[in-house]
Amino acid sequence: MIILENDRLEFRFPDVHERARCAIEFQRTLRIPDDGNDYPLPPGLGSFPLRHVDDYAARLPEAWHRRGGVMTPMHQAEALWISFHSGYPFAVKVATGKVCAVTGDAWVDHLNRGPQDYLVLPDQPWLDGYCVERGIIRQFVAMPLGEGYTVEEQLTGAAQHGGLQIVAYPMKAGRYEALLGRQARLADEGPVYYSESPGMGLAPGGRMRQHLERDHHRLDAWDQRHGSRCFVSIVNTAQWAAITGERPPTEPPSARVYTEHGLPWFDYYGSDATALAGSETLQGVASVAQHAKAAGKAPLPGNETIAVPHVVGLGGARRRRVREPAAGGTWA
């Protein structure tokens, strides 16, 4: 089951194991320059609000109600990253517009191993974008559907779904207990109506250094009879207030302004040996800047190349994996 708690999706599987729970939240962040350079990890600037779609059904298109789930507001061209919290092992699939963010393949509920189309928790603390090369992702950037920017539109030719899709499968209880036995020391852890427009989708932005970890368990370790999935619709911030009566979060600062204030970026050191290879399909998708250039449009504002002098390393298994401006160690 999935519940919504403090803007987090909490996945719980009490039928599988009392500890089988994980939380997923969507972090606001800087949009990194889409200039061909590889950037470190930007900070988390707080979580995006999440609301039940059912609570606003009268103000939303019927298609949104049909798919259920939750919704969140994003500014056009705003970036996000997905934060995972779990002490119990999970296999989690993430898609945008029903295209897998790891492989670029069309969405299927089940897990695949060749190539691996899912992330493994708690090894993977976050996902910032599409896996385009080994150790490199392209940042998730919100763009309106219908303009051809999103991965969904570029790969399927349709702007049908938008949003984000997630399914989580817990490890089988027996496997977990066996793992726990082997790793005992580590286990300590007035109605307004909108058209049928599907809102916003996610497109690939700038390049970032991030490892997506290879699954070191066997595929049959995952309990695929007990998955829970969720559709996260993305609402343009301009519509959010009219739908919910709440003010959306303000726009995050530009990467340049953030960096000029001496605030930290982050690096999390993974091993190339355990990182997934990038998807050739996703590598072939044009980034927002490439797409704008090809279409003769102006690039997004704040896309100039920046130097990042202050990078905080988050390596080491025992270090807290916190990406906050205030978590920058000695900078404060």
Binding site: L4, R66, G69, V70, F231
Partner: peptide
């Protein structure tokens, strides 16, 4: 028990997609 409490907790509804 916890399971009974969880039964009254509101779930995020999964629909048709």
């Amino acid at each position: 028990p916890d399971e009974a409490v969880l039964r009254v907790v509101r779930e995020v509804r999964d629909g048709d997609w």
